[in-house]
Design a protein around this nucleic acid. Structure first.
Ligand SMILES: [Mn+2]
Ligand SMILES: [Mn+2]
Ligand SMILES: [Zn+2]
Ligand SMILES: [Zn+2]
Lengths: 143, 143
DNA sequence: CACTATTTGCAACTTAGTTGCAATGGAGAT
DNA sequence: ATCTCCATTGCAACTAAGTTGCAAATAGTG
């Protein structure tokens, strides 16, 4: 993905293009798993990013619907973007998270409409607006 | 539920019967929603329970499979028991959690085998062992 | 370039949950 | 009933992810 495409995504979401935002979005776009604050800091490497600024960047991205947060089993947050084929991030959260029991990586998957509708009518009186399927198991790399 | 039944459940799970464990289990058994550490402290009321002891009690219950933990959106834990008709708690975690956007209560539901198997084959190479369906919406009381 | 609203950096803070350790007490053995 | 031992409890100190306040820097607009 080109640098200009990263800037375009930021503009698309009405965010000012700053070095930190560009760097962070770049990291998220190129990861196939959800990343923690610490993961992102590590990936950025030497060019030290302020801890608070990174949290604020991630929260801004989340609020704008550019990325989404996933809670881990040990009360931390992981952050992930999901790009559609047209390079515009999806903002809905109707998809599955696979959590590997071995390496603890979290992967995002879209969920078929058929499966979704099967879940939507869980119980009378409860109005379902959004859903997340969390799967625990072993990822391909850990088998 | 009788006091002797509470003791029986503790014995069933190889746990010594102590006043705190009896009290906490009693609270959990009688709640239709998942409860936080603070909720449980409040429900117990005057008879002050030590904060650390309560955390340890809940973690022990969780490790033994007597209850399960559910992560909230604001990185806290809620705790819930699910009793089968025979009064023995289920230990599997293959069920749904409904999170009310309004009152933020979390409800537990069993999930039909049909829906479960539909989800199980999410993607080639990922071996699914356990699943949690998280639904967000409006509960009956908040509509 | 100059202006302004937004973003960044640093230090201090918050708070759910944990750890260490000494005192207490449940439950099986005698 | 009393003894004994190991699990459980209580208290204080600690941990660490994430937040808040505020002054300094900077993107974007003209
Ligand atoms: Mn996801
Ligand atoms: Mn549950
Ligand atoms: Zn793995
Ligand atoms: Zn509600």
């Amino acid at each position: 993905m080109l640098q200009s495409e990263i800037s375009d995504i930021l503009k698309e979401f009405n965010l000012k293009v700053t070095p930190i935002r560009t760097t962070v979005l770049n990291v998220l776009v190129h990861s196939d798993v959800a990343l923690s604050h610490a993961d992102i800091t590590d990936k950025i490497g030497d060019e030290s990013v302020d801890k608070v600024t990174l949290y604020r960047t991630l929260n801004t991205f989340n609020e704008k619907g550019l990325i989404h947060k996933v809670a881990t089993e040990d009360r931390n947050w992981l952050y992930a973007i999901m790009l559609k084929s047209n390079k515009i991030p999806v903002s809905e959260h109707d998809h599955a998270h696979f959590i590997c029991n071995s390496c603890e990586k979290i992967f995002c998957f879209p969920v078929s409409q058929h499966t979704q509708s099967g879940i939507a009518s869980i119980k009378e009186g409860f109005k379902v607006l959004e859903q997340e399927i969390r799967l625990h198991g072993i990822c391909p790399a850990c088998q």
